[in-house]
Design a protein around this nucleic acid. Structure first.
Length: 488
RNA sequence: CGGGGAGUGGCGCAGUCCGGUAGCGCAUCCGCUUUGGGAGCGGAGGGUCGCAAGUUCAAAUCUUGUCUCCCCGACCA
């Protein structure tokens, strides 16, 4: 069997790229750091988007759309925010090209009066808009989400994990009180956690970012943090309590019920196509993509097996009847009736693309009223009776979903360590990787030192109270352990 | 942006050192035989060698510039 996918233990980065390619999720586009998301990848994103969108609606949010172009002056209004994003903004300076012998060049006469920023995130344009929408406490809260593309001029890119243009959702809410905004921030973090666990089958830790890892312009950044198979962490989603920073910068005030004019409290929260990268590195194996049934664009593929036209007709009839029955149950199913590929080839191809369940039907199955069921995640194959197959298959999809989560959780637990000394910390980091719970004195200096010496960062500070101790580096007191890891 | 590697039919590569007008495997198309784990045989199509300049009688090959990708670092979701 030809091996088109590099083995994980041989070269994890190459394996990741091979999986993306063989699963037909995406490919590089001519401009550095940009990608074409292919139908399979987009199908996956659409399923993720639909699930999230439903959850956003259920928590009272509405979708809106704000422009991709932002006046340059807006970016400079919130100091932290500028500092965070200034270095990675694409700027539109001209409005047209002109033809010159055989090609085109930028028309110098078309220089814009005010240059435009291609949004790296939309806080500024949104808060500029909210100012006009908010006058009274009766206008609050504003609970809006948008699905959009954003551009960040990254130095080093990887398909899905970090691209210059990516698709995401950004929620932007406005509230009358601090408490309400904080509650919103936490609620949306919970939405992300639920989505990651229940749909992506990806266990995540939740917590607060340290000051150095915080979103530019936020008072607090909460995050969900996942652990990849190679022991590196991935920030999978963030929810920010923005305090009154943007309200101050954009002068967004409201008259409260007590007659006082007050600054609005804000949140923003987002997840991106980066989640697809996380999904790949959580479940996939050396045969290709593995994706949870709830998100799989195709949940079941039916592969017919035959020796001649007569058998082909019989088997296809049997297979398409089964397909119709599965479709009627709302299952996303395909019948692979291509005649120019052999079954073995199709098996390998659908495995590479991560279809969770395969049903093979051949003349023997038709005769015995059977099918062969094969699980993508475990490669387990069984002959099953055609009678009662549909409910069996439905529950099997649920079992696969569940098993993927359990397997991922077990691996995360195995890759999680608790250490007390810096020596041990370094050893665990190099030998095993993963999440490491350790005491830290709470200073940016110590955090920086650890990062410089070990490349590990504080992924999050867990919520709530923890066991007190002393910092593994400085010996100063620590209120609780924080989570370290090397990360993507 | 610094260090390293690489761009040659759709994909993977050889050819580059030592210039002489492009080849292999897979894929594609046609035909026949096949089909329960990536089919076999026969035939056919497809490349201005990433792009741009330069050197030369002659450039995939030498020189310079530039773009893109991969790995490692600094930055970030």
């Amino acid at each position: 069997m030809a091996q088109k996918i590099t083995k994980r233990e041989q070269d994890y980065s190459q394996w990741y790229l091979d999986v993306v390619r063989e699963a037909k999720l995406a490919e590089h586009s001519p401009v550095r750091g940009t990608m074409v998301i292919r139908p399979t990848g987009m199908g996956l994103w659409e399923n993720m988007r639909n699930a999230l969108d439903t959850m956003f609606k259920e928590t009272g949010h509405e979708n809106a759309y704000f422009p991709i172009f932002i006046p340059k002056s807006f970016l400079s209004k919130e100091a932290q925010h500028v500092e965070g994003f200034a270095k990675e903004c694409a700027v539109v300076t001209h409005s047209r090209l002109k033809a010159v012998d055989g090609g085109v060049e930028v028309d110098p006469d078309s220089r814009l009066e005010e240059e435009l920023i291609v949004r790296p995130t939309s806080e500024t344009i949104i808060w500029d808009t909210y100012r006009n929408w908010i006058q009274s406490y009766r206008d609050l809260p504003i609970l809006i989400n948008q699905w959009a593309n954003v551009v960040r001029w990254e130095m080093r890119t990887r398909l899905f994990l970090r691209t210059m243009e990516f698709l995401w959702q950004e929620g932007h809410t406005a509230h009358a009180t601090r408490e309400e905004a904080v509650a919103e921030t936490k609620q949306m973090l919970e939405v992300y956690r639920t989505f990651a666990e229940e749909y992506m089958a990806m266990p995540v830790l939740t917590g607060v970012k340290t000051e150095s890892e915080r979103f530019a312009g936020a008072e607090d950044t909460y995050c969900i943090e996942a652990l990849m198979q190679d022991g590196k962490a991935l920030q999978a989603g963030t929810s920010h309590f923005l305090g009154q920073n943007f309200a101050k910068a954009f002068d967004v005030t409201f008259q409260d019920s007590d007659g006082e004019h007050k600054l609005v409290w804000a949140t923003s929260w987002g997840v991106s196509t980066r989640l697809i990268g996380g999904l790949i590195m959580t479940h996939s194996d050396d045969s290709g993509l593995v994706i949870p049934p709830k998100l799989a664009p195709t949940q079941i593929v039916i592969v017919p097996i035959y020796r001649n036209d007569e058998q082909r007709a019989t088997v296809l009839e049997y297979g398409s009847a089964l397909m119709d029955e599965l479709k009627a149950e709302g299952i996303r199913v395909k019948l692979d009736d291509r005649d120019n590929y052999k079954p073995g080839f199709k098996f390998a191809e659908h495995e590479a693309q991560g279809v969770p369940l395969r049903i093979a039907v051949g003349p023997r199955d038709v005769e015995n009223n059977n099918v062969e069921l094969a699980r993508r995640d475990t490669f387990e194959k069984n002959i099953e009776s055609r009678e009662g197959l549909v409910p069996k298959v439905k529950s099997l999809l649920e079992i696969i979903q569940d098993d993927l989560y359990k397997t991922a959780l077990k691996r995360r637990e195995e890759l999680t360590s608790i250490v007390d000394s810096y020596e041990e910390f370094k050893k665990v980091l190099d030998d095993k990787g993963g999440f490491i719970y350790a005491h830290w004195d709470g200073t940016a200096e110590t955090e920086e030192l650890i990062k410089n010496e070990t490349k590990a960062t504080i992924r999050l500070i867990p919520f709530g109270d923890g066991e007190e101790g002393t910092c593994m580096v400085t010996g100063k007191p620590s209120k609780k352990r924080v989570v370290f890891a090397r990360s993507y």
